[in-house]
């Protein structure tokens, strides 16, 4: 009896020490990871002339760099473009994918497996290999330099169909069966019963689509050529040359470009993290 007690105590104290070392290493890494962000904020709060002296001290704190960024760039347009494009894409993906998933999960029809696997095969095709035909396609229908050129190709997201199907499959059916018995249409069942129950999946897909669309660079870079139509990443990537070596201004523009997503992250941290952990989505 006593001997086990002593062993347990030793194990516990050993474990405590180990945990403490773990925490130390972890904190060191976390600080290292925060360093670039802090340095960006630090630089942005200095006057341009003082950024070339490398010191954390800010002798003359100023927000001029932020004011100048708003004045000299189309930042508000970029916010607007990113917000419209990302919201419409998220909305579209949720509607289109959940409807398809509902059919696959709840209905019986011919060649269902073929349809499902056909859709899943889409996960294998990265959008990046389609940029050339996409460009020709949107050129042909005269939609280059519109938000639609960015939104439309993102809508058929096979991965979202897969996530919704998994989620729908796991929902209890009693309610829908009763509704169907009462003569409710499939659309009514989908809209009134299944979608409300699937709110976590809707949130995960919507937020994740919103974030990846907001951050997308390659395709919007090709189709949005005019500065007043650009999304935040495209604008920052294209007009950065204009900042020259004004480091405070550059960092201010980077921070302003980051703020909306940092806000989204702080608001929806749980959904984003669960969405990733649950499905392993990655652009």
């Amino acid at each position: 009896m006593t001997s086990t007690g002593v062993t347990m105590e030793r194990i516990q104290s050993r474990e405590r020490l180990f945990n403490r070392i773990c925490a130390g290493v972890l904190i060191a890494f976390a600080l290292l990871w925060l360093l670039p962000l802090l340095w960006a904020v630090d630089t942005a709060l200095k006057p341009n002339e003082e950024t070339t002296r490398t010191t954390w001290l800010i002798d003359n704190p100023t927000v001029d760099a932020f004011t100048r960024t708003f004045r000299d760039t189309d930042m508000w347009s970029w916010y607007g473009a990113s917000f419209i494009i990302s919201s419409l894409t998220a909305l579209g993906v949720v509607v289109v994918a959940s409807m398809a998933a509902f059919a696959i999960s709840r209905m019986r029809f011919r060649h269902k497996n073929l349809v499902f696997w056909g859709i899943l095969a889409g996960i294998m095709i990265p959008g990046q290999v389609l940029i050339v035909p996409w460009f020709r396609e949107f050129d042909a229908v005269n939609l280059l330099n519109t938000y639609w050129a960015v939104i439309l190709p993102q809508l058929p997201a096979a991965i979202a169909v897969f996530i919704f199907k998994q989620f729908f499959d796991g929902l209890p059916r009693d309610l829908e069966e009763a509704a169907r018995m009462d003569g409710a249409s499939f659309f009514r069942v989908y809209r009134r019963i299944v979608l409300p129950l699937a709110r976590p999946a809707v949130a995960a897909v919507a937020i994740f689509t919103f974030v990846t669309t907001w951050n997308d660079l390659l395709w919007p870079l090709l189709v949005l050529s005019n500065p007043d139509l650009m999304t935040v990443p495209v604008g920052l990537a294209t007009v950065q040359g204009a900042f020259g070596i004004r480091y405070a201004d550059t960092m201010a523009s980077a921070i302003l470009g980051a703020i909306p997503l940092v806000a989204v992250f702080l608001l929806f941290q749980r959904q984003i993290v669960q969405g990733i952990a649950g499905s392993g989505l990655k652009g």
């Binding site: 907001w214 960092m251 470009g257």
Partner: peptide
């Protein structure tokens, strides 16, 4: 969560 353009600006600095 940051756009690549923001990351690039910070790291180029």
């Amino acid at each position: 969560i940051l756009p690549s353009a923001v990351v690039a600006l910070i790291w180029m600095w």
